[in-house]
């Protein structure tokens, strides 16, 4: 039996890098983050800033970024999406 190819030829899309990675936040005491199925305790909140952009496009971007120090000594950047109310991990450098 000859198989139907079931595939459509198409060009590669542009792949953006440093896309936000969804994480979970446990706002208990201590505050914990679930990143790639592992829990990390936040030891210190070091910085925060907000960006609001592209509200004119109908798909507004509104994020509150936080620079946090984890218990294992690593410093990471996370943000709260103020539109869908979810947490994400993303480098901002």
């Amino acid at each position: 039996m000859v198989e139907n190819p079931r595939a459509e030829a198409r060009a590669d899309p542009l792949r953006f890098v440093n896309k936000p990675v969804p994480i979970e936040m446990d706002a208990g005491d201590p505050v914990r983050l679930l990143i790639k199925e592992r829990w990390f305790v936040i030891r210190q909140w070091r910085d925060r800033w907000r960006i609001d952009d592209e509200w004119w496009r109908g798909e507004e971007i509104s994020r509150m970024y936080f620079r946090v120090l984890l218990e294992d000594g690593r410093e990471i950047t996370i943000f709260r999406d103020l539109v869908n109310k979810r947490w994400y991990l993303q480098s901002y450098d």
Binding site: D12, L14, R15, F16, V17, N18, K19, P20, I51, D53, E54, I61, Q90, S91, Y92
Partner: peptide, 22 residues
């Protein structure tokens, strides 16, 4: 195999700054 290229390096949105191109 891809090359990282600057797209909008000035962007405030981090994921818009760089992209992979073949």
């Amino acid at each position: 195999v891809y090359v990282v290229r600057e797209v909008e390096p000035w962007s405030r949105i981090p994921e818009r700054r760089h992209a992979l191109i073949p």
